[in-house]
Design a protein around this nucleic acid. Structure first.
Lengths: 344, 344
DNA sequence: GTGAAAGCGCTAACAG
DNA sequence: CTGTTAGCGCTTTCAC
């Protein structure tokens, strides 16, 4: 079915050892003539060495495992994914992938799948930190691990995250400086995780610092693949109760999009009646009825760094763990009510 | 580093053959007591058989390869992907993934990567049918292949697509019946491919059938990861030239979103000044300033069927190829100007 | 400069 | 009922 090294060897009239040497540029010298023949045959037969065999032999599979929550939940994860993929490909690494849908059980099943495939490292956006704690702690001893975006505070593994406290702080402060005193936080449908906790912290921190008492957290249903809809419903019922808020900090752009629609349908205007700031700087932002002010994360950098750190462990055997925390950035559009020109 | 069958065997005080038998429920009977011991040890050690070794041995890797254009280009591909992933997981299959970004060269490189990993089958959304024709024709003899969404008319492989001629026909006809006589087609930034060609055909077919002479195809730049922006720019310059059209059929929702924004910024109203129909029924549709009328494709079914057909070939050795063509459906919202209640 | 042979982890045929 | 062994495709000593 597949062409093997044997086929190449017999076709070229040499031993498999020689074929292997030629194809791997073995320091062992091979006669120029032999080399050419082998190369030609390998090319004609379009031979690709089996990574299964190579992996078995070398105890290195040149594959990385990824566990993501979902790809339909906005482009945040997708962008990180593409960066990972590109960087992996540059290093001749393959990607084996699974989506957890934010379910801790599914996540464990996926990890086991990756273990069976003997990936050289795993990049994980964990769903519910806390639940799989012991599991990952054990796993870490078996294979290099890096957590992206979210993490287990108790596990001292590599991780690359965004400073979410700061991001939320900036967002909230921005609204405060615009004169808002009644700012609500619109929560997302993600299971509890560090990135969201940190954003909530940042929200409170900003309010504290500016001596604002008013706090309000609007909860949404937890369905990661229907964030917009869940947020839409939550906002609709919240506004229906005639709550007096003048601004909203949404924990991500997806829920902001749902909220925007709800506000609009209730006959209110953004940013005049309610100002809105999102998080993630989704590519949809500029195309919304009211372009969305948001907090940008360095998505591509996160993905690229995840691979770099993993390969560092795999190849250079680094054992001390690294925690990289990237800076978020405020992107001003119209939904917050600021004049973009003032700050850009 | 990893726990192997040997570790389990020695720990349990049996041979590796016995461990293998127990773990694979070999018809060979194993003493109940031995079985229990092995199971316990395997569990304690959290042993996972190496798929590398199993794959080598059985010439079946239980992995499927996927090649997709991109994940940030709207949720169309993502939704298909999730369906594939779910169905694969149900059959204990893993997914090895690569994005081609619509580049034919990259696509070939990715195929080679999948070949090296000895995947049991490949699911491909090809980027530029025509370019890699001979390549795929050869590949097909090596490994089961299925094309999704787009395909090579010349290659008689399995494929699952949507009836795009019909989808475009329905969309265009819908606009015609709403009284429009000057309907433009807004093209997408995808490289030329069957799905888009078919939609263009459907557009012309509807116009032909209703004896409408006016035709206009608005081209956009070809950047798959910036579809909205490319469409936005194309529309802006098109409208700037004072063209007289009353409706637009956009080849996908992404470009429709970009167009919507351009129309809006030009001071025109949807659907009053320009009616708009998209394609794909992206989840963003209901959240746009003017909820988007669109043509829905059976994305989940496409993904699921792709896996099913592939496994059919892998396990049941089917050799006749199957072409599945799913029916599209019109989803009426507000952007077309129809009263949803009329048709729902 | 090249070939023969061992062995990575596993399954399956063959003994016992 | 269980152990021994060959071999999947490849790399890597060790001989010649």
């Amino acid at each position: 079915m597949w062409v093997t090294i044997k086929n190449v060897a017999s076709e070229a009239g040499v031993s498999i050892a020689t074929v292997s040497r030629v194809l791997n540029n073995d320091p062992h010298r091979v006669a120029q003539k032999t080399r050419e023949i082998v190369l030609k045959v390998a090319k004609d037969l379009d031979f690709r060495p089996s990574k299964l065999a190579v992996g078995l032999r070398s105890t290195r599979s040149t594959a990385l495992g990824l566990i993501f929550p979902s790809f339909v939940a906005g482009t945040f994860y997708s962008e990180i994914f593409h960066a990972i993929e590109d960087e992996a490909a540059r290093n001749k690494y393959g990607i084996i992938l699974g989506s957890s849908y934010g379910e801790a059980n599914k996540e464990r099943l996926l990890v086991d799948l990756l273990r069976e495939r003997r990936v050289d490292g795993m990049i994980i956006i964990p769903s519910s930190p806390g639940v799989n704690f012991i599991y990952y702690q054990r796993l870490q001893k078996e294979v290099p691990l890096i957590f992206v975006d979210r993490y287990f505070p108790q596990i001292d593994s590599d991780r690359v995250t965004t400073d979410n406290v700061k991001g939320a702080y900036i967002a909230t402060e921005h609204l405060i400086k615009l004169g808002h005193k009644r700012i609500a936080l619109l929560s997302g449908p993600e299971a509890p995780c560090t990135s969201i906790y940190d954003r909530i912290d940042g929200y409170h921190k900003a309010l504290d610092e500016y001596n604002i008492q008013f706090r309000k957290i609007i909860e949404t249903k937890k369905d990661i693949n229907k964030q917009k809809e869940c947020a839409y419903k939550a906002m609709k019922s919240f506004l229906g109760n005639g709550s007096e808020i003048s601004a909203i900090f949404a924990v991500n752009d997806n829920v902001a999009i749902g909220a925007l629609r709800a506000i609009w349908e209730m006959g209110l205007r953004v940013p005049d009646d309610i100002a809105l700031v999102g998080y993630d700087d989704d590519e949809m932002g500029p195309f919304l009825p009211i372009p969305l002010t948001s907090i940008a994360q360095q998505k591509a950098t996160m993905g690229k760094l995840a691979v770099t750190l993993l390969l560092e462990r795999i190849y250079r055997g680094r054992f001390t763990s690294r925690h990289i925390c990237l800076k978020p950035q405020l992107v001003i559009r119209s939904s917050c009510g600021a004049r973009p020109s003032l700050s850009q």
